[in-house]
Nucleic acid binder design. Structure first.
Lengths: 360, 360
DNA sequence: CTGAAAGCGCTTACAG
DNA sequence: CTGAAAGCGCTTACAG
């Protein structure tokens, strides 16, 4: 924590007067108005290619950079998009959402004003106020895991879309992962490998993931004509400890494959199976969820897992937000029902055996 | 990816004229100047408590919110701090830096303009330009792992501090983790538990972490009067595979404890030891580095690990940046030597045995 | 103690 | 095809 400050040597931020539009106008021998048209390449006004060129040259020579603040003030839009996250640091997940959002914003020449609320309501309130004062074009409200929320009232004065979460009163568009499809595809992957007795280690915490993935699991079994068996479905705390604890019941259930609610559960299961001398995937196949790189890719054997489309969520969230702004839709009575469900992709690795399990 | 858009029902963003300072001035029966003084609680001007009150009341009633853009334009400072990250999504690490930076910025009424460059130079260049156009007060340049960098020239026109990285030409202040102290404390922890033969599984990739932690390791041994033994130091790829592969050599070295370059290496080692029936910590003690929650806290047994002070890095980075602005220091000849090294804390769990190892 | 006025750097009808 | 001028919403010397 000590600071070694022997000598301070950095470019003194020269108070060099910033070059303004006025300067380039004068240099180009035109009015500021003309300079503005030329630089912004405004199509509604016909300037001679000649004057355009003159202005461009002057701007380049002077090293002109527009002052977005002034521009925004005059135009009313800041080219900033607010991004409220409940927690960027707990997992890499939120990071991917932000990346997607940023990339999409970028394509429209906009930047993100990001605030991490840490789930503190007071921070959230100030964040919304501050973003408003900065005249953001709209706000993305996001969570690090998929869940229902109560959209803060203060957001209703803004264009807003929720990402990885949805308002319980459906007061804004939502972009969320398709949990059901994820559960369906995971189960189907196991079925395609020849498995019939497929355990599902679900989470005990109520959530869209809990119900959606279960729905998908059931639908896939049904589609394949496999009898549902409630002894194959178990609920545990959704982490390593939970997975570790589920091993006995899984073995007792005679399952030849197991669909884990997430990769952490799978990791715990790996430990428990290893201790019992049960080999993956030859004795039992496993598929996870979340595709949490640090776990899934490095387990022995590497874990096949469903991914969450975080990057896409970010992209689509911003896209939806900008659509909102460009054509604000009429206020109607009734329920808002603007939900975009994004597909969860599969990441195939080595934890699923194509051959029938020895235990079967 | 389908969108269910049955009915679009959200508050039409009413084009309600925003209430301006002018409005509250009129409502309070004073001039805009006075209103401005009152609202900003300017101390340099003495307003009657009476008029102050009148203005405050009018502002509250009208629901006045200042337009920061206009304010910034007039004052020249945007109250925005640029934050350039090379990669927020790969690990949760960068997220913690951002959290720290944000919290500190917040304390000064400022927000972060965050850009993830994905290490693409073109994105970086545009980011710096855009931030400049938004008149940021300064820029934090950060990396997700500690490393030397070439500070982009474009940054030299801004107040800038590098966080979790340092310019090879030392052209700006740097805030980085104290790798040496981390290596020292990790080794000392093992020594205090009675170990003498302590292996160090270092990374093959050259980095401040590689050299710093090694220095610390050596210094701790020396301080304890333990003979250095180069057969105890090995270099592997710094992940699970690398750790897994190091097991044989560790066993051959007769080490009773091992200091792993990071938690992922430790995770691989856990696997390898388990396969060989070697128990942690009774047979061998292990300490990791990074304190990567999803790994360290959930291994069996939970892994003791050195943490990286990411949050603190963010806090101190912004703090330093704001200091820079408030008293710009003179340009001098010679080397800039403004480096803040932040202490790496230890997180004690269950992977170190106090009793002498059975193998010893 | 308070007001009138210029200015921050840009955009955009409005004339010509 | 281009210029003069007003305006975006605030701050801040400058008077009084």
């Amino acid at each position: 924590m000590k600071r070694e400050s022997i000598s301070h040597v950095f470019r003194m931020l020269e108070p060099m007067r910033k070059v303004t539009l006025n300067d380039v106008a004068r240099a180009a021998g035109v009015s500021v108005a003309t300079a503005s048209w030329a630089i912004n390449n405004n199509r509604k006004v016909n300037l001679t290619e000649d004057t355009r060129e003159k202005v461009r040259k002057a701007a380049a020579e002077l090293g002109y950079h527009p002052n977005v603040l002034a521009k925004s003030l005059a135009q009313g839009s800041s080219s900033l998009i607010g991004f409220i996250a409940d927690d960027v640091a707990t997992t890499p997940f939120a990071g991917r959402i932000i990346e997607g959002a940023q990339d999409e914003a970028w394509r429209h020449g906009k930047m993100l004003l990001i605030i991490n609320t840490d789930e503190k309501p007071t921070v959230e309130t100030s964040a919304i106020r501050l973003m408003g004062e900065h005249q953001v074009d709209g706000i993305i409200y996001s969570t690090w895991y998929h869940r229902p929320i109560h959209l803060p009232d203060a957001l209703l004065n803004h264009a807003v879309v929720s990402v990885n979460c949805f308002d319980l009163q459906a007061r804004c568009p939502a972009v969320i992962p398709n949990e059901r499809q994820g559960g369906y595809d995971a189960t189907q992957e196991l079925i395609h490998a020849g498995h019939q007795r497929i355990a599902f280690v679900n989470t005990t915490s109520p959530s869209p993931a809990q119900t959606g993935r279960l729905e998908g699991y059931r639908a896939a079994l049904e589609k394949a004509g496999i009898q549902p068996d409630s002894s194959l479905i178990m609920y545990v705390q959704a982490d390593q400890e939970g997975g570790y604890a589920a091993a006995e019941r899984i073995l007792a259930s005679q399952a030849t494959a197991v669909f884990c609610h997430n990769d952490r559960v799978a990791m715990g299961l790996y430990d428990a199976f290893r201790e019992r001398g049960i080999a993956i995937p030859s004795d039992i196949s496993i598929i996870g969820f979340d595709n949490q790189e640090v776990i899934a890719a490095h387990l022995h054997p590497a874990l096949t897992s469903m991914g969450l489309p975080h990057y896409e969520l970010g992209v689509l969230g911003v896209k939806r937000l900008l659509e909102l702004r460009s054509n604000p839709e009429p206020l109607e009575a009734g329920e808002m029902n603007d939900v975009t469900r994004v597909t969860c992709p599969i990441f195939r690795r080595k934890s699923i055996s194509k051959v029938p399990s020895k235990l079967s």
